[in-house]
C-alpha cells in the first residue's frame, strides 16, 4: 500500500498533520515502526520542541538509520519545523548536536539586535518569498533557523526583524518547511497536497 508515513517518535502533535492529509483525502498514516518506512511512498518528519530531544527520539526508536536509508531511495522526504531542522548536519541549540545530515548546513538561533528588536520565538503568520510568484503567509513558531551551506538549497525565504532566513529548504528529494503547513489554512494545505503529488511524480 502506497501511503505517506508520518513518523511518530514521541514528540509533538501529529494529530493535526494527519488530519490535514485526511481532510484532503490523501492516504497517510502515523507510524512508530522504523521498519515500516520501506513500504511508504513518502515520509513526513514532524516535530516541535528541542533539537536534542528530537534526535534522541529518532535514535532511541531506531528511526535515524531508516530515514537516511529511505532518503537515499530518492522517494520524497518532508521535514516540518523541528523536522526540517533535523535534516541538517548539526544544530547549535543548547550545545552542539548532530542532525540527520541529509542537507549540508546547520541550525542557529535568532539573536536580538538593538536597531530592529524582535520577539523570540518568531511566532505568528509571516510571508514566504521565492517559490511562488506572489508570497503567501504561513504560521511559524520557532527560535532557531536553518542555514544551508549551499544557497541553491534555499527555496523560500522569510523576513523577520533584520533577518532574512531560509523557510523552505530543498535538496533533490529532501524538502523542509520551517512553518507549520497543517496550521497555515488553505495555503498550507495546498503545500501538503503538492507534496503528495510529488510522491507519484518525484520531487
Amino acid at each position: 500500500m502506497s501511503e505517506i508515513a508520518i513518523i511518530d517518535y514521541g514528540l509533538g502533535n501529529l494529530y493535526s498533520i494527519y488530519k490535514a492529509f485526511a481532510y484532503q483525502e490523501i492516504p497517510a498514516r502515523l507510524t512508530d515502526q522504523p521498519k515500516s518506512l520501506k513500504e511508504a511512498s513518502a515520509i513526513v518528519l514532524p516535530g516541535v520542541g528541542a533539537f536534542e530531544d528530537g534526535m534522541k527520539g529518532l535514535n532511541d526508536r531506531g528511526f535515524t538509520e531508516e530515514v537516511i536509508r529511505f532518503a537515499a531511495t530518492g522517494k520524497p522526504v518532508l521535514g516540518i519545523c523541528l523536522g526540517m531542522q533535523m535534516l541538517m548536519d548539526e544544530s547549535l541549540e543548547m550545545g552542539q548536536h548532530k542532525g540527520l545530515g541529509l542537507i549540508p548546513g546547520r541550525v542557529i538561533p535568532f539573536e536580538n539586535n538593538k536597531e530592529k528588536p524582535i520577539k523570540i520565538p518568531h511566532m505568528g503568520w509571516n510571508e514566504v518569498k521565492g517559490f511562488t510568484t506572489s508570497p503567501e503567509m504561513y504560521y511559524f513558531v520557532h527560535s532557531y533557523y536553518v542555514q544551508p551551506k549551499n544557497q541553491d538549497h534555499v527555496v523560500g525565504v522569510t523576513e523577520y526583524g533584520s533577518y532574512q532566513f531560509c523557510s523552505i529548504v530543498q535538496k533533490d528529494n529532501i524538502l523542509g518547511f520551517q512553518f507549520h503547513p497543517e496550521k497555515s489554512a488553505n495555503a498550507g494545505l495546498a503545500l501538503l497536497k503538492d507534496f503528495s503529488k510529488k510522491t507519484q511524480e518525484g520531487l
Binding site: M123, G124, N126, E127
Partner: peptide
C-alpha cells in the same frame, strides 16, 4: 515581513 501581522 519585519513586523508580524496582527492576529484576529
Amino acid at each position: 515581513m519585519s513586523q508580524l501581522p496582527v492576529r484576529m
